[in-house]
Design a protein around this nucleic acid. Structure first.
Lengths: 366, 366
DNA sequence: AAGTGTTGCTAAAAACTTTCGAAACGCCCG
DNA sequence: CGGGCGTTTCGAAAGTTTTTAGCAACACTT
């Protein structure tokens, strides 16, 4: 084994060291030769493993592959074009605490990959026309992450023709299948929220979701509907309202629902912000949460924990979604193939104190 | 052996030292050539490192970057007039809803001025060393806004010598007077909050502020103290606690305060997040807000309005602070003189439902 | 015009692939 | 049982591609 080490060390460092003299020659990228030395085989053999050549014994192959894996070996090269070290994160409105969670995830990835994250906000009805894509190009972006945005053919075309990689998070409309996207299991989340309320004994459960033309709104309501149907509770379209995911919308829709002749005993709010709107409407009417009204949110913003009462909500891993999207964008930028074009991170029901068994008196009215 | 010395020493000492002879050779601004000599590479190679060109070996790049950092290298060609249309917004941690408010202000300005905003987060105790400034330079930023950051001479020096304009928002420590800064009238806010509580009849008023080494923490507490003194109420150091501006700190400090033998009837929380921590502590102890405990926050985050009960707080115009800072940065970038080097936007007390007249029973004990 | 920094080009070195032959192994038949 | 023969496995060496760094010419600012 001694001679093996000699063999590789010579080639690798001999030249460099001589030239550089006393200088440090640290941090070498893991190279085939290094792997070979460690595995106790020759360099060509490692090369064969990497390229799936047939003439390697299974046991040898396994050993080398394990080392390869361990060293996170990536074949040198493939960094074709020069990177600017800047990616753009485009929100559809920056007014939600929601956004900052995503941003955190993306920024974290950026920090680890020496990449800056430029944040911008483009509202749908914005005065600024479609030219925002050219603005992106003007500062030489490496790639774009679009959040909750409605994608137009035109914009996609612009990005594509500029050769700018794109990943979308929670797209409003279904993106063309070739666009990588990241989302959460909205349907499952809606289902979990509804089943939780059903299991507490609620039967008259209302839902306030986001704008009707958002995919994630629909998915959440669909989960809600499935939950009801599976429990044999009739789905009542009159108990479904479309908000805007914001506090105001939640408040306004909650007011409508609470003024219904047969008031619901629980509201699935479709976003934490809307849930707080429901809180406000309930407070205005002197209804106590959860005694008189159970509320479930969606998102798990940090404030959900601190609300009074703490909000039962469906956790959406926002920061993780951000870093997952950034991760995918990174792969695209480096021209590596994507493992999957669609990533869905799972949601999780978090039960706190805003949900409880409904008051008997009110239920009896059926 | 002969050629070894040739490689590194030739240029460096043969040239410089001989020419200068007995003279001091320190004065010279560090130039690429000097770095190159020291690193034992050629000048163009250093240039490539500076510009993030891909054709430099990782080990070489690391060595050169280290030297660059050490020498506080700054490009010689005075101010670059070609603008990149990119400014950097650097937070000290991105975990607060606070941050997104500032971001909104800056982004708004950016949108109006065709400038992208790159967001990053550098924590004080961060593993990444001083080299974040060079990261900024590498993507060719037009200017930097630092938020709630502790400024070191070194960092300032790096930015200054790179000719990158800088504006700070709410600096932790007092910046050198020539650095433009934006803040709020923290002292007046603390005063207003305290006077409000006093006018309701509270006499035992506690304060939870931010970290003791933050200027804005001190100013707020100082306003609180002045309010007490003007009203003839003795200032009790035992009622002042230092949190972290976050929810957790507010909770922990509130627990301490509420467990005091003589419990305060009101708490000035120094930030909205901390105020919610106080809410939680109060809830745990079965204290009702505002009947048993009045709470005043600071910031006026959007959630303050939606909390239960809605939070009385001191509004800090965060978004305006962001756009004011961006505005100033814009002037600096265009080499226009600044109207003022220090902008203080005014705070405003917003009375909601978390403050009330203290319960008589408890006060009588005084 | 001098000082500084940038960039295309080229040569070299390094990293990786491929070819090919030798050793090791096993199998069959004499 | 042992030697010929084919097969498998691996490495030496030669070939190929990619990376790296310096040269020299160019660009920009005083």
């Amino acid at each position: 084994m001694r001679h093996q080490e000699d063999g590789t060390a010579r080639q690798q460092q001999g030249g460099t060291a001589r030239r550089r003299d006393g200088q440090r020659l640290l941090e070498r990228r893991t190279t085939l030769a290094a792997i070979a030395a460690e595995a106790g085989v020759s360099l060509p053999t490692v090369s064969k493993v990497v390229n799936g050549r047939p003439d390697v014994a299974p046991s040898t192959r396994a050993r080398v592959e394990q080392l390869l894996d361990q060293h996170q070996y990536a074949r040198s090269g493939l960094r074709r074009h020069r990177r600017s070290g800047l990616v753009d994160l485009v929100f559809n409105g920056l007014d939600s605490p929601w956004a900052v969670e995503i941003l955190r995830g993306v920024e974290e990835w950026g920090a680890q990959h020496e990449t800056a994250v430029a944040v911008s906000s483009v509202r749908h009805g914005d005065a600024r026309p479609a030219s925002w894509t050219s603005a992106l190009a003007s500062h030489d972006t490496d790639g774009v992450i679009l959040v909750t945005t409605r994608l137009t053919e035109r914009q996609l075309g612009q990005l594509r023709s500029a050769g700018i990689p794109l990943v979308v998070i929670d797209p409003a409309n279904a993106p063309p299948p070739e666009i990588p996207s990241v989302g959460a299991t909205n349907w499952a989340g809606g289902l979990a929220a509804t089943e939780h309320l059903l299991s507490l004994g609620h039967r008259r459960i209302a839902a306030i979701t986001g704008p009707i033309d958002y995919l994630c709104s629909l998915a959440r309501v669909d989960g809600y509907r499935s939950g009801l149907e599976r429990a044999g509770v009739r789905f009542d379209q009159g108990l479904v309202r479309y908000g805007d995911f914001q506090h105001e919308g939640g408040f306004a829709r909650a007011v409508e629902l609470l003024d219904l002749p047969q008031r619901p005993t629980a509201i699935f709010a479709g976003s934490d912000q809307q849930a707080f709107g429901v809180y406000e409407a309930a407070r205005q009417r002197g209804l106590r949460i959860p005694e008189d009204l159970s509320v479930v949110g969606f998102d798990e913003l940090p404030v959900a924990r601190w609300a009074s009462p703490p909000l039962t909500t469906v956790r959406q891993p926002l920061a993780e979604m951000g870093s997952a999207a950034a991760q995918m964008l990174g792969e695209l930028i480096e021209d590596r193939p994507l493992r999957s074009n669609r990533v869905e991170l799972s949601t999780e029901l978090i039960v706190r104190e805003s949900t409880a068994v409904p008051a008997k008196s009110r239920e009896s009215g059926k």
